[in-house]
Design a protein around this nucleic acid. Structure first.
Length: 570
RNA sequence: GCCCUCGUAGUUCAAUGGACAGAACACCAGCCUUCUAAGCUGGUUAUGUAGGUUCGAUUCCUACCGAGGGUACCA
């Protein structure tokens, strides 16, 4: 139970006893200014509206009827009817000991115990490079996985690879044209991508190529020997590349069930859809009419008999339902596919493929090029993910060499990776999911304030103090000595961390955690500048060391939830 | 045409219907013989337009303007 929950619970007690208002919805917030208290509730304003009574009167009644709690020592009422809570300093300082005791578990919970969440994210296409667009899904998806695990959920992160679609017919067609009937073992992803692009270029003038490509696809789907071996080659080469990227990003999936995994189930899906009267024929194809629900029809089988992404996704929902019976089935996919997911979820519902589980499209905005326009492959604007990462690592190395000359070569390599990848990931994670992002090299590789390196630097500064201190272990300290404004501010940041974690998980918005860490880090740096730690008197020094130990601990936990590592030196 | 998302400072982004709209970058002025200056302190600048609901609107509703996306055989 978080601190806000404690306050809420106590307010609810008064509501029940005094106003017989049980199901009322109100909030508990952090007020905008410290003078206004540490927590504030609008409950009196809500009741006031409901009962048509003066909210100030209600606020006062509420204040007077509120049970005591050692968490706060003062409650006030402010216009037009806020009730403000002021934390008890002794209670606050005592939290520090609890935080340190909980260690890296601080902020976790078991509220997800017994519940399974499936998270579908990343999902790159075989035979294509991963670009910045995949980064968003991967990084946000991974953070949502981490947050849910931290809250006790069983998490199935699934990389639903695009490994069986129409593109393979085209690819095989073009491959045969260039390389003939041999297996080119050393083919690269770049070459595969070029085959695909060339096909499209040529097919514009020779549309008859499309039909041949479809035949190649059919042969693949029938497991014809050569085409299948070719597909395996494409798959293997692509996976090797993907794994390099995931290794660097530090992302691990529980399963890798791509479209090919579901291929055998597709005829069954179609048969079931027909049998249940969900699907119908239209213009030679098979569709699900969703007019009743205000949606355009969903195509599940093409005129030529081939299946689509939708067919495969329906099979996926069914599979996940039977295999995991999840409470949530989440798709971290770009906003572009918004309509598609509405159709998909509705169709799945009609088919009875899911019942209680919450189906959710966690959408995010696009990554746009300079000037806010969509990035175009043709103009060479689409940034290759590996290229960005490598550029970032190089830039980080240059920076480290200037900043810290005492690092060994190995340390330099390792640290540069941690910093560069942190910066790149944080760029996505610190922003609201829904807004479109303008891709900007400088911003993505920013190492200053408002970046992951800023947070990492906080951790390193604390570590550096400990290296110079004799007090390596937690000793019994008197935390009541922590009376500086900056210290109180830091402790409040620390106790609010679990609420940030929870809000981030509930709203699927990792940027809530990012923002919280940024505030904590800023408050730490400010504290660091104004208050001496090692030079303070013995007792105060010990208490301060514990305080910054807790700061480092929370920074590390938070960054880990975001999938960002923390270096020991930088 | 219809549907979805977004419009906040010069730029890039924050802000579960709450109190005086926050940062960062950039720009200007300071701070390293003192725990790592990737830092700190101070300064200038913003809610697309017009209505509505509300004690209170960046947030909800309506219209308009602007950007992006989608709108059955791609994913």
């Amino acid at each position: 139970m978080t601190n806000k929950d404690t306050i809420k619970k106590q307010i609810r007690q008064v509501l029940t006893d005094k106003y017989q208002a049980d199901g009322l919805d109100f909030n508990v917030n952090y007020p905008p200014l410290p003078e206004m208290g540490d927590y504030a509730t609008n409950v009196a304003l809500v009741i006031g509206k409901e009962l048509r009574k003066n909210p100030l009167t209600i606020a006062n009644e509420l204040m007077n009827n509120l049970g005591k709690n050692k968490m706060w020592n003062k409650v006030t009422v402010a216009k037009p009817g806020f009730v403000n809570f002021f934390l008890n300093q002794n209670w606050l300082t005592a939290q520090l000991g609890i935080i340190l005791k909980q260690g890296k578990k601080y902020g976790n919970s078991n509220e997800g115990k017994g519940k399974t969440v499936v998270i579908d994210y990343s999902a790159p296409n075989i035979a294509k490079k991963m670009h910045v667009g995949h980064l968003r899904s991967t990084v946000i998806g991974a953070a949502i996985c981490n947050l849910h695990k931290f809250l006790g959920y069983k998490v199935i992160g699934d990389n639903h690879l695009g490994d069986w679609g129409t593109q393979f017919g085209k690819l095989i067609f073009q491959y045969k044209k260039i390389y003939g009937e041999t297996i080119k073992k050393n083919i690269t992803v770049e070459e595969m991508e070029k085959l695909y692009l060339d096909f499209h270029q040529e097919a514009k003038e020779r549309p008859e190529m499309e039909a041949v490509a479809r035949k190649e696809l059919k042969k693949l789907q029938d497991h014809e020997k050569f085409n299948y071996r070719l597909w395996q080659l494409f798959y293997r080469v692509s996976m090797t590349e993907f794994k390099k990227v995931y290794d660097l990003l530090g992302v691990k999936f529980e399963t890798w069930h791509g479209e090919s995994f579901y291929h055998k189930m597709l005829p069954g899906v179609i048969a079931e859809a027909l049998k249940k009267g969900v699907a119908e024929k239209s213009q030679g194809a098979l569709i699900v009419n969703l007019e009743k629900y205000g949606l355009p029809p969903l195509l599940i089988k093409k005129t030529d008999g081939a299946y689509l992404y939708s067919t495969s996704d329906l099979a996926t929902i069914k599979y996940r339902h039977e295999k995991y019976s999840p409470t949530k089935n989440l798709y971290v996919v770009a906003d572009q596919q918004c309509l598609y997911f509405e159709q998909l979820f509705k169709t799945s519902e009609l088919l009875g493929y899911h019942d209680k589980e919450e189906m959710m499209h966690i959408k995010f905005g696009l990554i746009l090029g300079k000037g806010g326009k969509k990035m175009s492959t043709r103009e060479g604007e689409v940034a290759d993910l590996m290229e960005i990462i490598n550029e970032g690592i190089e830039k980080a190395k240059v920076r480290i060499k200037i900043k810290n000359k005492n690092l060994s070569k190995i340390e330099l390599e390792k640290t540069a990776k941690i910093i560069a990848l942190g910066a790149i990931k944080y760029n996505d994670l610190s922003q609201n999911r829904l807004t479109d992002i303008i891709f900007d090299w400088d911003k993505m590789l920013n190492f200053e304030s408002g970046s992951a390196p800023y947070l990492q630097y906080t951790y390193v500064r604390v570590k550096s103090i400990f290296k110079k201190s004799k007090d390596q272990k937690i000793k019994r300290s008197n935390y009541k000595l922590l009376k500086e404004q900056a210290e109180i501010k830091l402790m409040k940041d620390l106790i609010n961390f679990p609420e940030a974690v929870r809000a981030a998980a509930e709203e699927y918005k990792p940027n809530i955690v990012a923002l919280h860490l940024d505030k904590l880090a800023a408050d730490f740096h400010s504290y660091y500048e104004q208050v001496p730690i090692l030079k303070a008197d013995e007792k105060i020094r010990r208490a301060r060391l514990d305080l910054i130990r807790a700061v480092a601990q929370v920074i590390k936990i938070g960054l880990e939830l975001l999938g960002v590592k923390t270096p020991e030196k930088m």
